[in-house]
């Protein structure tokens, strides 16, 4: 797979997740893009802001809504060498959450550092 997807150039991709995991399909289809981007050996970072922080919440039970519980897939990101995962501090605290409520290890950044994170990227895709 690595050879087939080798396009010779490595760029810094940041995927920005802004929406709750359910209620719209953006979160699920964003995750699909993140996994593909990692398979192409790009330098991948993932950021969760606003309601996007709910995507990482432990103990999701979307089955009751007839929705697929894709939150477990976030645990697989490490296997795809996606290790730069950021959440915005204020987005967590405004929603009564802390990093202890999340199902994977993340680096939390204050709101005033998010701009610099984005500035350091070549490509920013927002979902």
């Amino acid at each position: 797979m690595d050879d087939e997807n080798d396009i010779g150039v490595v760029k810094r991709f940041l995927y920005v997740n802004r929406r709750a995991p359910h209620g719209s399909i953006y979160a699920l289809e964003s995750l699909e893009t993140v996994l593909i981007g990692a398979a192409f050996d790009q330098d991948v970072s993932v950021l969760f802001v606003d309601d996007g922080v709910f995507q990482l919440k432990k103990d999701q039970q979307p089955d009751a809504l007839g929705m697929k519980n894709f939150s477990k897939t976030f645990r697989a990101l490490e296997m795809y060498d996606v290790e730069k995962i950021y959440v915005e501090d204020e987005s967590l605290s405004e929603r009564g959450l802390s990093v202890d409520d999340l199902l994977i290890d993340v680096e939390s950044l204050p709101r005033n550092k998010i701009g610099a994170l984005m500035d350091a990227q070549d490509v920013v895709l927002s979902f």
Binding site: N5, I7, V9, K11, F13, E32, T33, I36, G37, A39, F40, Q42, V123, V124, L125, S126
Partner: peptide, 17 residues
Amino acid sequence: GLGQLIEASVEADRVVS
């Protein structure tokens, strides 16, 4: 496939969404 998005992003000077 989605690989076409990644490839286009790598090859372009800018990505506009």
